[in-house]
């Protein structure tokens, strides 16, 4: 089984987003995130959510199934966060559910937080899906980041799908061990604790081996290094950034004018 069937892996689909200079995409994620923290209305968040979804599917050629598959945990967490705000935010009570009170402010803030979380994570996923992490490292180096630091970002992103693969393997292995307690929650908690332990231990071992291997392959010996493959910025890459700034700016203005 290859890892590429897992969600968070770069794939060159020969899309517009694949060709955009990595630093521009990184800047784009920041622009999207900043906009979301300025919006006051959930409608702006929803518009941006749809925009990012369309960007992923059209400009990135990423299948909707993949977006849903990788994002379901985050979207689920976003929904939990939304419901949490419904009940805990102070404001005028508009609905009562036993001892729980839903407030008008909660109904407004809940979706805002849902979209903040979902859109920022989705934009980050798009960056991962469409960017060869090696190219991101090279472009960061070109922007003046010391290559050892840039490589740390690269390694972190490189290990993501491997960690996901490890989680799947551990989950599968644990599921056939059965459970000795009737407490479903207690068992699940124990399993999660063990997933984290196993992945942490194996992660540390891998990190140690990789670090040794890097040293043995002369990584960091010189202040610079050769790059066999180079990446180049093109003015066309800026379209993504400019269109997003226009939409985000438009939404901020519209919130204040309308």
């Amino acid at each position: 089984m290859s890892t590429s069937e897992h969600g968070l892996v770069f794939e060159n689909r020969k899309s517009y987003l694949n060709s955009v200079y990595p630093l521009v995409k990184l800047a784009w994620v920041f622009v999207v995130a900043i906009g979301l923290f300025i919006y006051r209305s959930p409608i702006s968040g929803a518009v941006m959510f749809l925009t990012i979804l369309l960007v992923a599917m059209i400009a990135g050629k990423i299948p909707f199934q993949q977006i849903l598959g990788s994002g379901k945990i985050i979207f689920g967490l976003g929904l939990l966060l939304m419901f949490f705000h419904f009940f805990v935010d102070p404001g005028n009570v508009v609905f009562k559910l036993g001892p729980l009170h839903i407030t008008d402010n909660g109904l407004l803030q809940g979706p805002i937080f849902f979209f903040r979380l979902s859109v920022v994570v989705l934009a980050s996923f798009i960056l991962i899906w469409t960017t060869d992490t090696r190219d991101l490292m090279v472009s960061l180096t070109k922007a003046g980041v010391p290559y050892r630091g840039a490589f740390a970002v690269f390694l972190a992103m490189r290990f993501l799908p491997l960690i996901q693969k490890e989680v799947d393997a551990v989950k599968a292995a644990h599921s056939i061990r059965g459970k000795p307690t009737n407490s479903k929650f207690g068992h699940r908690f124990k399993l999660w604790r063990r997933y984290i332990f196993t992945i942490l231990i194996n992660g540390l071992r891998k990190a140690e081996t990789t670090a040794t291997s890097l040293e043995c392959r002369a990584f960091g010996c010189f202040p610079t290094r050769t790059y066999v493959k180079d990446v180049h910025y093109k003015p066309l890459d800026l379209i993504l950034l400019l269109v997003t700034i226009l939409i985000s700016g438009g939404l901020i203005v519209a919130e204040r004018v309308l």
Partner: peptide
């Protein structure tokens, strides 16, 4: 666990690049 890049040819080039 020694590998540090994503692609086969990049992996071979990594050491000499350093």
């Amino acid at each position: 666990s020694m590998f540090a890049t994503l692609y086969v040819e990049d992996e071979i080039a990594f050491g000499p690049e350093n």
